[in-house]
Simulated scan of single mutants.
Amino acid sequence: MRILISPAKKMKIDTDSLPYENLPQFLEETQAILQCLQGMDYAGLKALWRCNDSIATLNYERVKAMNLRRDLTPAILAFEGIQYQYMAPSVFEDKQFLYIQKHLRILSGFYGLLCPFDGVTPYRLEMQAKLAVNGERDLYEFWGEKLANQLCSETDFLLNLASKEYSKAVLARLPKSIRFLTCTFGELKEGKVIEKGTLCKMARGEMVRFLAEKNITNPQDIKNFDRLGYTYREDFSDSQNFVFLKVEEKNAANW
């Protein structure tokens, strides 16, 4: 089993808490992307990033001085988004670190595919960014089949906790022999499952923590997730999508 998650826009440098173990496996491709970014001016990068001046200035300076082999942070500690806050890897025990190093993979527009203890430097680049690299019109075409092929070499079961922006980079390129299971976290409104961005990120992070704490590798055991008020719903789920619903207290007694 491999668990897929998205990166976060906000990143930090932490070279003290834990050492990184390896360089990312697609570093040559990352270097090509970096060279492309370094060839752009401030206005072009700000437009690419679609951000304010403060964020653009910070990341412009990062790009111009970026070294992919120095002052690196383990990927699992480098990202600071909501998902990672709820995963809380900084308080994992050794056995949980061993679990995620084996099973967890972070999809990235810049690095492609990351293991938790791959050494990374702060960057800003979404997978859906319209960046032409090496003649390819965007990052989806640039990465092509590389990410899917690597994952297929590791497992025949992918548990998708990534957003559609990132899972899109893998899903369309998988052979039918690979099981791709997505977890949906939502609320029931007028008979429809409604997903809310922030709550989904919280649940995805909590799910990774749950899987690591329980050492889960059997798909059936994923259904036992019951944190943050979510419960697995067989009636909304199928073999490709496990649905977990947060039930309002006033409606909890109705099913």
Rank of each mutant, 00 (worst) to 15 (best):
Thr184Leu: 09
Ala162Pro: 01
Tyr166Asp: 08
Leu151Trp: 04
Met202Trp: 00
Glu154Ile: 08
Val170Cys: 05
Val170Asn: 04
Val208Ile: 13
Ala169Cys: 11
Lys146Pro: 05
Gly197Tyr: 00
Ala162Gln: 07
Val193Asn: 10
Glu213Thr: 15
Ala212Asp: 12
Asp156Gly: 10
Ala172Trp: 06
Glu213Leu: 14
Lys168Cys: 13
Phe157Ile: 12
Thr217Val: 13
Ala212Pro: 08
Lys196Gln: 14
Lys168Ser: 14
Thr184Ile: 12
Leu158Glu: 00
Lys214Ala: 15
Lys164Gln: 14
Met202Asn: 08
Ala148Tyr: 00
Thr217Ala: 06
Leu188Trp: 02
Lys176Thr: 12
Ala169Gly: 01
Ile216Cys: 07
Arg179Ile: 10
Lys176Cys: 07
Val208Lys: 02
Ala203Ile: 11
Lys168Ile: 06
Thr184Trp: 01
Leu158Ala: 04
Leu181Asp: 09
Ile194His: 11
Ser163Trp: 09
Glu154Met: 09
Ser163Tyr: 04
Ile216Thr: 14
Phe185Lys: 11
Glu165Thr: 07
Ile194Trp: 01
Cys152Ile: 13
Asp156Ile: 10
Ala148Val: 02
Val208Arg: 06
Ala212Met: 05
Asn218Glu: 15
Thr217Pro: 01
Ala169Asn: 02
Met202Val: 10
Val193Asp: 08
Leu147Ile: 04
Ala203Leu: 02
Lys168Glu: 14
Leu211Asn: 13
Lys196Met: 13
Cys183Thr: 13
Arg179His: 08
Gly191His: 07
Leu159Thr: 04
Lys192Pro: 11
Thr155Asp: 11
